[in-house]
Nucleic acid binder design. Structure first.
Length: 235
DNA sequence: TGCCAGGCCGGGT
DNA sequence: ACCCGGCATGGC
C-alpha cells in the first residue's frame, strides 16, 4: 500500500513555479518548438528520438532541400530518398518506418488530413497516436503540446534528470509517473508547459548532462538540496 | 577512444 | 510491471 499516488517527495506545493520563474528570468523565452508547421513538429519529434537535436535539425534541412518536407512531397518520395535525407539523424531505417507508419495511419484514420487529425478531442487523439508503431509517449506528447497546443507535459530525459537530481521525483520514475506529478502540480496551461519544458531542456544541455552536472553555474543551483545533486556519483 | 544524445520496440523475466 | 539489447549517426 503506497502512501502517495506519485513517485515523489513533495516539498512546498509551488516549488515548480519557483523553478520556472528562476529559469525564465535567467534564460528568457525559448520560442519552442523549433519548427514552422504542425507537420514539421511531428517529423522533428520522430527524428530527435534519442538523438542530439543538431543531427535531427540536419535531417530536417535535408528534407527541405529534397522538397519532401510536406505531405505531398513525403508521399511522392521513394523509401530510399527518405532514408538518405534523414540518415544523419541516426536510426534512420526505423525512423523512416515510423514516418511512413504515420502517413498510412493519417490516410486511414483521417483521410490524409492534418486538420481533421488536430480537430480530434485531445485525450482520444493521444490514445490513437500511441497506436502508431514508433510513436511512444514522448513523441505523442510533443505533438500534442507543440502542434496541438494542448496541456500535456513532455517529461523527457532532461526533465526527469533535473527533477530527480533535485529530489522532486525518484531516480527511476517512469515517464508517466513524472508527467502525472507535473500535471497534478502545475495549472494545465499549454503556454506554461511549452516554455517550462523548453527551459528544462536548455538547462539540461548546458548544466545537467548524464555524466556531468555543472551545478555551480546552473540557474537552479540555489534550489539544490544538500551539497550535491542526487544521483550523481563520484567524490 | 568510448560514451553520449530531447526514444521506442520486442522478447524475456 | 520492469529489464535488456538493438537500432545508427555525429561530436567531444
Amino acid at each position: 500500500m503506497r502512501s502517495s499516488r506519485f513517485p515523489i517527495a513533495v516539498k512546498t506545493p509551488n516549488v515548480l513555479r519557483k523553478y520556472y520563474q528562476s529559469l525564465f528570468d535567467h534564460l528568457g523565452p525559448q520560442n519552442w518548438w523549433p519548427a514552422r508547421t504542425r507537420l514539421e513538429v511531428i517529423l522533428g519529434a520522430i527524428l530527435v528520438q534519442n538523438t542530439a537535436w543538431r543531427n535531427a535539425a540536419l535531417a530536417m534541412e535535408h528534407l527541405k532541400w529534397g522538397g519532401i518536407l510536406g505531405l505531398r512531397g513525403l508521399r511522392k518520395a521513394s523509401r530510399k530518398d527518405l532514408e538518405n535525407a534523414i540518415r544523419q539523424a541516426g536510426f534512420y531505417r526505423q525512423k523512416a518506418d515510423t514516418i511512413l507508419n504515420f502517413l498510412n495511419w493519417l490516410d486511414l484514420r483521417f483521410d490524409g488530413s492534418l486538420n481533421r487529425l488536430f480537430s480530434t478531442e485531445p485525450a482520444l487523439l493521444r490514445h490513437e497516436l500511441l497506436t502508431i508503431k514508433g510513436f511512444g509517449p514522448e513523441t505523442v506528447d510533443t505533438i500534442l503540446l507543440y502542434a496541438a497546443k494542448q496541456p500535456f507535459f513532455v517529461a523527457d530525459a532532461y526533465t526527469r534528470r533535473i527533477l530527480a537530481r533535485h529530489g522532486l521525483v525518484h531516480l527511476n520514475s517512469s515517464y508517466g509517473g513524472v508527467q502525472e506529478y507535473l500535471h497534478s502540480t502545475l495549472p494545465p496551461d499549454p503556454g506554461l508547459f511549452n516554455e517550462f519544458h523548453a527551459l528544462l531542456v536548455e538547462t539540461g544541455k548546458r548544466y545537467c548532462r548524464r555524466r556531468e552536472a555543472r551545478c555551480r553555474e546552473c540557474p537552479l543551483r540555489g534550489f539544490l538540496p544538500g551539497g550535491r545533486p542526487a544521483g550523481m556519483e563520484g567524490p
